[in-house]
Computed example of a mutant assay.
Amino acid sequence: MTHRLTFGRPAPGAERTPRGWEWRWTGAAVMGILNVTPDSFSDGGRHAALQDALAAAQAMREAGVVILDIGGESTRPGAAPVPAHEELDRVLPVIRALRSADVLLSVDTMKPEVAAGALRAGAHLINDVTGLRDPQMRRVCAEAGAPACVMHMQGDPQTMQAAPHYADVVAEVHGYLRAQAREALDAGVPDVLLDPGIGFGKTLEHNLSLLRALPDLTAGPHPVLIGASRKRLIDFMASVPHAADRDPGTLALHLHAARCGAAVVRAHAAAAHVQALRVQAALSGGDRTRPPGPQRTLDSGVMHHTDTERA
């Protein structure tokens, strides 16, 4: 399956088109998680130092990861908010150090002021767990020509797992995502990805229902992102209490998502995902998952460009 995402300004791997700069790829691309927080649920503190964050980014790029999602505030259940200035102090040095790299930089933030600062510093994409509810976030993305990932979350990180409830989780989540996508596009945001928000205000059964219903969401006009990396539902299904031990379960969930047409999977063990997705693509009879950009080839997990024009 071929996916497309349009930017209002140049982005790595994107081709100029009449609508803007189009980022095109086949299969599921891997978004590598780069948390620069001290308190993320799985890897808090590991990449808080700039040199550690850049080393992790380099390792993911060499493995074939094409998107880095940089986060300066934890959104784990019960997480306390972080002031915007503190979040910016965490993410801006990483963005500035990576902005000349041949990789798409996403910033995981709920705050318009953080999104604006990150985009000015060189980020390309905003990943908003609140689903662009804030009109100011839509304005920031529209003015910067930045697409956004629109995620569904019931409540907020402090309350979302208290008592999640839905009459019909699939209809409500899919309907919300489609409505938010329309609002974003009407506000001038150049494009969106949709994320059903696995683990964000959902019980195990809610999550399973959404994962089983992925073909309905991926059949729509917008690329779909799935981020189930190391989440608690894997413990519920497979008795894995420690988050760092949940990579095998994560791979199983994300391979399922890719088979259902997901365009992006967001993962901590990003290099393992690149390898697994390439093998799955080969077994299914298609080409290995092709990363974004015109006529790219893969060699030992490292991306190379041919001489075609790109932004």
Rank of each mutant, 00 (worst) to 15 (best):
P292D: 04
D287F: 01
A258L: 03
P292A: 01
A276E: 01
A267D: 07
G293R: 05
V265S: 02
Q280A: 14
T250E: 08
H273G: 05
P248F: 09
D245M: 12
D287C: 03
V265M: 01
A270Q: 12
S284L: 13
A271Y: 00
Q280K: 07
A243N: 14
V279W: 04
R290I: 09
P292M: 03
D287M: 06
T289K: 00
L255S: 03
H256A: 03
C260Y: 13
P248C: 08
Q275H: 15
V274S: 04
R278H: 15
G286N: 04
P248E: 02
G249H: 08
V264H: 03
L255M: 07
Q280Y: 04
P248I: 10
R288V: 14
L283Q: 07
H256N: 06
A252E: 00
V265C: 07
A258V: 06
A269T: 15
A243C: 12
R278K: 11
R266E: 08
A281S: 01
R278N: 13
A271G: 08
Q280H: 03
L283P: 00
P294A: 15
D287K: 05
V264W: 00
V274W: 02
V265D: 09
A276R: 01
R290H: 05
A262H: 07
C260K: 15
A269P: 12
A257H: 00
A269W: 09
D247S: 11
R259T: 07
D247A: 13
V279Q: 05
A252R: 09
Q280N: 00
H254T: 06
Q275W: 11
D287V: 03
A252M: 11
P291E: 06
A272P: 04
T250M: 04
A252H: 06
A281I: 01
A272Y: 09
Q275Y: 12
A263C: 01
D247V: 05
T250W: 04
T250P: 05
A258H: 04
Q295F: 14
P248N: 11
L253S: 13
V274I: 02
A269H: 15
H268Y: 02
V265A: 06
A267E: 11
H273D: 04
A282N: 06
V274C: 09
P294N: 10
A257I: 09
P294H: 14
H268K: 05
